[in-house]
């Protein structure tokens, strides 16, 4: 085991991935395709979900908010793991790029968590009869927003330096404890929020005509998340690598990358 984990040529890809310059060039090639895919999926899913999916027997048309609420909530949670894992890689391997990804994941995650809470609120009014409740699900989701904002604040306060990166990574890792709690809150406690519709272990409790556009939206949001994360990371690369030769060449319109 130890032998396997020892330094060997098979780790080269990992260290090449850690090169900001390589990442900037490669992501520049991926972005057009990813953006096109995200745009196509999101437009298809939105038109399908809002105009063509049948309405819900009990909730009527207000249920259509699900086509935004569920995908943004999925990514708000998944994005936290991405941020925490990036922080962990930064701590262990001292990889510069990894810290940049961690920093980039914070605003994207915060924005999506805000959207999860906002779309939940405007869905809550016509269904529950209130915009906001302090039940375990909504409250733990609010804590997630504060965790994201905490990382943003740390990065800002420490000017993204080594100490700030370490502190952010540790806060991100500590905060991962909140994710299973958010997910299981509807099962562990009596909440106003209903249990999960989509589960890995069983078929979704949703008619296939309604589920198909939701699936398109979820995949679309995964692509959108990747695009946003790459864009924020690239901005951070340019900012932190501004003294390097390749960024200077890029700034002067030098060799196309």
């Amino acid at each position: 085991m130890n032998r396997l984990l020892n330094w060997s040529p098979s780790w080269q890809w990992f260290h090449r991935l850690g090169s900001p310059r390589w990442f900037y060039q490669a992501s520049g090639r991926w972005l057009p395709w990813l953006s096109l895919l995200a745009l196509t999926l999101l437009l298809t899913g939105l038109v399908w979900g809002l105009g063509f999916a049948p309405q819900d027997a009990k909730q009527g048309n207000s249920f259509r908010i699900i086509y935004l609420h569920v995908p943004v909530s999925f990514l708000a949670l998944a994005g936290y793991y991405i941020m925490a894992i990036a922080g962990a890689i930064g701590l262990i391997w001292k990889m510069k790029l990894s810290y940049m990804v961690m920093k980039a994941a914070a605003p994207v995650g915060a924005a999506l968590t805000f959207l999860a809470l906002f779309t939940g609120a405007v869905w809550g009014k016509p269904t529950w009869g209130t915009y906001w409740v302090w039940d375990a699900r909504v409250t733990s989701m609010l804590i997630l927003l504060f965790l994201y904002l905490g990382i943003l604040a740390l990065q800002y306060a420490f000017h993204s330096n080594e100490a700030g990166n370490k502190a952010s990574a540790i806060l991100a890792l500590v905060g991962t404890a909140n994710i299973p709690i958010i997910y299981k809150s509807v099962d562990w406690w009596y909440t106003l929020h209903q249990p999960a519709t989509i589960k890995l272990t069983s078929a979704p409790s949703m008619h296939p005509d309604m589920f198909a556009p939701l699936l398109v939206m979820i995949v679309g949001f995964y692509c959108f998340y990747t695009v946003a994360l790459l864009l924020f990371t690239r901005a951070e690369i340019l900012r932190r690598e501004r003294k390097s030769v390749w960024v200077r060449e890029l700034a002067l319109g030098g060799p196309a990358l």
Binding site: P54, T127, T197, S205, H207
Partner: peptide, 18 residues
């Protein structure tokens, strides 16, 4: 002083529900 409706996690089109 306040009554809220709790809904379940199931979604069904009206015709199917009927």
């Amino acid at each position: 002083t306040e009554v809220l409706a709790k809904h379940d996690e199931k979604y069904t089109p009206p015709e199917v529900a009927d």
